[in-house]
């Protein structure tokens, strides 16, 4: 009974993403505010009755599509361990993780090889895409000083793409995501890159058709993988941006059928109701 469990059975408890779903910094900040509001509103009231906090949290679901940004940011560096099959153990007694020092990048990215965006209406968003939650991770430095896109391993490409995205270089980030997908087709890295690229196209590059194609490709590659939920939600969002209500309704139905317990399920049902004739 007291034998230690392998870390993959019960990973260490910490404040890094997982097992709770990763959050964007915007959503995390909204939660903090609503928790403090709720706690200070009426100290004698039961927590369960704190409507403002719950409502605030529910409203935050509208922004959860941006989870992908945080999610891919968390996944990309860790793909180092995936590719090398060396998942770091998370024993209960492991020391605290230290932030990874930022590295200066001397190289300049080549001009982005982004397809010309098709002209579509921008996706209606209640707020700008949330920035990535900065999650320090040890030993996952991409070690990219002079990155050769044609030779770099996928984890370096994804890590650098995240850097580009952080400075709002959407084209540069997309070029790196596409290089990852092109050089490592059918890999998990390609799925991460594909979904991240699709979200960039949908939310930043106003290219819903391109986003739709990438979400579908990612879903086809890993239909039951950990990003399937984000891909299915993205398909519905892209169809909405393209103005195809029938396709959007089908996408929402598929999303709810596959992910009925998703945090986005209430938003999907609300949208379904709006689309109902």
């Amino acid at each position: 009974m007291d034998e230690p469990l392998p870390s993959e059975l019960l990973p260490r408890l910490d404040g890094l993403p997982g097992p709770a779903r990763a959050l964007t910094s915007a959503r995390s900040a909204a939660m903090v505010r609503s928790i403090v509001d709720a706690a200070l509103a009426d100290p004698d009231a039961p927590a369960r009755a704190e409507a403002p906090a719950r409502m605030g949290w529910r409203r935050a679901l509208r922004f959860a599509a941006a989870i992908l940004f945080c999610f891919s940011g968390a996944v990309a560096p860790a793909l180092v361990r995936h590719v090398k099959h060396t998942v770091a153990p998370r024993s209960p007694v492991a020391p605290p993780r230290q932030p990874e020092p930022r590295r200066e990048r001397k190289h300049d990215l080549a001009p982005p090889a982004v397809e010309p965006p098709r002209t579509v209406a921008p996706v209606p968003r209640p707020m700008p895409p949330a920035p990535i939650v900065s999650v320090p991770r040890p030993n996952v430095s991409p070690a990219v000083e002079e990155l050769d896109v044609e030779k770099a391993p996928p984890e370096d490409l994804l890590a650098l793409a995240n850097e580009r995205r952080r400075v709002r270089d959407w084209g540069g980030a997309d070029r790196l995501y596409r290089a990852t997908s092109r050089r490592f087709p059918d890999s998990d890295a390609a799925v991460v890159a594909g979904v991240a690229s699709a979200t960039l196209h949908l939310e930043q590059l106003r290219d819903a058709a391109g986003a739709l194609r990438d979400y579908r490709q990612a879903l086809a590659t890993r239909p039951t993988g950990p990003l399937a939920e984000e891909a299915r939600w993205g398909i519905a969002e892209a169809e909405r941006a393209l103005g195809d209500s029938a396709a959007e309704a089908l996408a929402l139905r598929d999303f709810l059928a596959k992910h009925p317990g998703s945090a986005l399920a209430p938003a999907a049902r609300r949208r379904q109701a709006e689309l109902a004739p």
Partner: peptide, 30 residues
Amino acid sequence: LDGGADLEAVPHPDAPPDEYIASRRAVALL
């Protein structure tokens, strides 16, 4: 919810064993 509502959240065996994915996989088993 105990009827398996979240079983669809069990990731594919090919899911990347990154720490986030690993912890999501672990909680899906839990």
